[in-house]
Amino acid sequence: MGRLERSFVIVNSLGLHARPAAMVVQASNRFRCEIQFEKDGLQINAKSIMGVLTLAAARGASVLVICEGDDAEQAMAAIGKVFESGFGER
């Protein structure tokens, strides 16, 4: 049982738009732990695409990822990979 926090910077040119949002939500839903994203004081459930979309995170924006629960470590690793890949975009 743990709580992990890590910041990621959006690196792809189009930002966290619809397709990347679907990607991170899919990744988040593979884990049991609670996953929240926080940006500019707005905190949302990372398992909700509606929530992730409302972040409207552009290139260069920093998103804090908070995982809390049994598999927090695995979840953080998986989500980190998605962010760091620039969602497979440039």
């Binding site: 949002a21 679907a22 939500v25 909700s48 695409i49 509606m50």
Partner: peptide
């Protein structure tokens, strides 16, 4: 093109979205 397949994935995620 991957782009419109992605839109379908977005809709799929929305169908099961907890906020909905």
């Amino acid at each position: 093109g991957a782009e419109h397949l992605a839109i379908i994935d977005v809709h799929r995620a929305m169908l099961r979205d907890p906020s909905l």
